[in-house]
Design a protein around this nucleic acid. Structure first.
Lengths: 234, 234
DNA sequence: TGTATTTTATTTGTCGACAAGAAAAACACA
DNA sequence: TGTGTTTTTCTTGTCGACAAATAAAATACA
């Protein structure tokens, strides 16, 4: 009874390994700690997490299902590339989903949703003030994901989450070294969107969501056209 | 050299097992051979396909990623339920994706896409004529998926495919025993949509896609309201 | 030196076995 | 007979090992 855990740290609960590996790899991919093209080695991960290859493999299958990694049969597996040549399809989908989710949130939100959204809004504002780029990116995504959740359409939400994930990678690419003016303007726009939702003004929410999305797209395109060589670098 | 495969059938190629199990289970789920709530037993599947549990498990993880099955930790795993209480969120997403994909197809299709779309169109027409309900359902989905492919936006396409999958299950529920009038009207509408796409008439494609989607939604809702007890049955 | 072929090495895909967790069954006790 | 506890059973999650497939290295040959 007394000598539980005599000499071992490895006490890890049963189903937790997969989720741990999945979450960590996902974050590392989205924050570009693992840039596109990075090789993913199963045995290396197994050693790093001190577990068998089986749970590692399951986490990788999930990541592959979301398109975050790519698997060549019988050969290597690596972090998915960012498709710069088809960025417009990404922007098209992003703008539409911004509109739809904001619109639905204005129609369907419940009181308890507002607190959550407002929380991320404040996190984002704080990140802008302290010029913490990584935090700006992730809290911005969390803010909009929370809005989508309030809209209560899981089909839209899941696509939107995937787009926000990809957006995190793209933004991270630009806000890496130069701490760009991730402008105060975005904070204000977030506040406007939040107000429109709270007022259940569906049309205004739609309009503001669209404008906000196009703002972001325009800025990314501006940054992108500035250094065109970046697609070669990856 | 001569005695390859002396006595064995089990010659199965290396990476093929997972895909085989995945494809088959997916079809059985979408055709309601495995109705919602059916238990999925790993060892049973392993025996059935004469392979280890490992590849079975990988196929199940993929299916779970697409929401087709649900896994209770440390306990059973079963075919996902159809959420009848939130059918409207499904219809919302479906109508929007019909519109978007048809619109994009009109804008972005290439000549070779038309042949593919037309092929499924004819398959569908043939299925309607022979009153083959199962075939109607699957070729209808294939027709619209082909249109989405021609639109060349993988984000929209992947969501739309998921919606069409779920649609297959819902339609299968109604066109099961009674060979309903899956009307000729749908064939005509398909032809109109195809013509609008070919003419690159984006607005017409959008309008026809929307009308077609709402037709289908209306019919499903009519069938659904007719037998309201069906949600209890599942 | 350059090319084709064989050998080695590395990584993935699959297997059988075992242990943990939860449900079901058996049991004890009133 | 009814309720709480223990035992059993069944399924999943994890492991270590092996075999297939491919890439890389080494070798043979011109």
């Amino acid at each position: 009874m007394t000598d539980i855990d005599t000499n071992s740290i490895p006490e890890r609960k049963r189903g937790s390994g997969v989720k741990m590996v999945y979450d960590l790899l996902r974050d590392e991919i989205l924050d570009l700690v693992l840039p596109p093209g990075s090789p993913i080695d199963e045995v290396q991960l197994a050693e790093r997490f001190k577990m068998s290859r089986t749970p590692i493999r399951e986490a990788l299958v999930r990541l592959a299902g979301e398109g975050l990694i790519e698997t060549l049969p019988n050969r290597s597996t690596m972090v998915s590339n960012i498709d710069f040549l088809n960025l417009n399809t990404f922007f098209d989908a992003l703008v539409l989903m911004y509109r739809v989710t904001t619109r639905l949130a204005a129609r369907n939100y419940r009181p308890e949703d507002l607190a959550i959204i407002r929380g991320f809004h404040e996190d984002y504002a704080a990140a802008v003030q302290t010029r913490d780029a990584l935090r700006m990116i992730s809290t911005n995504a969390a803010f909009h994901a929370a809005i989508a959740d309030a809209g209560r359409n899981p089909y839209f939400t899941s696509l939107f989450r995937r787009l926000l994930d990809e957006g995190r990678r793209i933004l991270r690419l630009y806000y890496r070294s130069y701490d760009e003016h991730f402008p105060q303007r975005f904070v204000d726009e977030h506040a406007e969107i939040l107000a429109a939702i709270e007022a259940r003004d569906i049309e205004a929410a739609d309009r503001l969501g669209k404008a906000h999305a196009e703002q972001i797209v325009a800025q990314v395109q501006k940054l992108f056209s500035r250094d065109v060589g970046i697609d070669i670098a990856l």
